[in-house]
Design a binder for these strands. Structure first.
Length: 284
DNA sequence: CTAGGATCCTGTCAGC
DNA sequence: TGCTGACAGGATCCTA
């Protein structure tokens, strides 16, 4: 679930809170959620946080790093003097911790970091710091919209001519960072129907997609991601990207902000997909 | 090689 | 109320 903006939000928020802290204790409640030996990170100190697409990496001072992928329902919650929670938006942010969905607990000097994950698709993985870039997922990761050129992106589209454009921009090995929300928002802004074959996308449209992907994600990062980032704010109100800025995602039946046509929900590439049938015309 | 569907797992919600 | 199937902000694996 968390996409690039949410992961970036987590990275920024947690950096301020956990860097320089030592991992005093580490506890794995769900074996599937932790890959590697837990002993390897005990009593190490957190030095730095990095982000690769939707993956977050915590570098330690003993040559090891923790790579974390939240997948659909992962959350990282730091409970210290204040609580900082980000990732999958759910009321669990308000629960007492640990709770039923807590998979890994890292006890630090001034607080505790909880990895929660309802569906157990996410994980924390121990890597050698120097091997982080060689992790299969990170190694295959494409450039993010800020780094890829329109020409490069266009060339990649030609390799997947018959795939719907939505499937293509969700593919992290083609362009990194977009997930289901920002893919829909990007295509809406670009006035491109999600089922358009990637081979039909013009060079201009390729450029537009990149520009809009940057816009929607920057806007989301500025608003703290489409997720709850603050325990106090999380109390009842969900001041998040989805409510404030999303144009089509989760807006089935509501009027298109541009032309007032009701937003439709369809299925593309196996994912729920939101479009304005008037602004995003299907191309034959 | 690409494309599409099933799959991992838990929880919630709409519809009967 | 209880049951059932669909669906979920992701990525990989398997098959054709």
């Amino acid at each position: 679930m968390p996409e690039l903006p949410e992961v970036e939000t987590i990275k920024r928020g947690l950096s301020n809170l956990i860097i320089k802290q030592k991992i005093k204790k580490a506890k794995v409640l769900c074996e599937k959620s932790f890959v590697g030996k837990i002993e390897e990170i005990k009593s190490a100190t957190i030095e730095n946080l990095r982000r690769f697409g939707k993956a977050i990496v915590i570098d330690l001072n003993n040559g090891k790093s923790l790579m974390i992928h939240l997948r659909m329902t992962g959350q990282l919650i730091y409970d210290g003097k204040e609580r900082y929670a980000a990732g999958h938006p759910s009321d669990n942010f308000l629960d007492n911790l640990p709770n039923k969905q807590t998979r890994v607990i890292l006890e630090l000097e001034n607080g505790t970091l909880y990895f929660n994950d309802q569906r157990k698709f996410g994980f924390i993985k121990v890597l050698e710091t120097k091997e982080v870039e060689n992790d299969p997922f990170i190694k295959k990761l494409a450039k993010e919209p800020w780094d890829i050129t329109p020409e490069e992106f266009y060339q990649k589209l030609q390799k997947h001519q018959n795939s719907p454009i939505k499937a293509t921009i969700l593919d992290q090995t083609i362009i990194a960072g977009l997930g289901n929300i920002y893919a829909d928002e990007t295509l809406f802004m670009s006035k491109i129907h999600p089922t358009t074959k990637s081979g039909q996308i013009t060079k201009n449209q390729a450029k537009t997609i990149i520009e809009n992907a940057k816009k929607v994600m920057e806007k989301s990062i500025d608003s703290g991601g489409s997720t709850l980032k603050d325990y106090k704010k999380a109390d009842g109100t969900k001041g998040d990207y989805l409510d404030k800025f999303a144009q089509v995602f989760n807006k089935k039946g509501q009027p298109c902000p541009v032309c007032k046509t009701p937003i439709k929900k369809i299925k593309v590439a196996g994912r729920g997909t939101h479009i304005c049938p008037h602004c995003q015309k299907e191309k034959k």
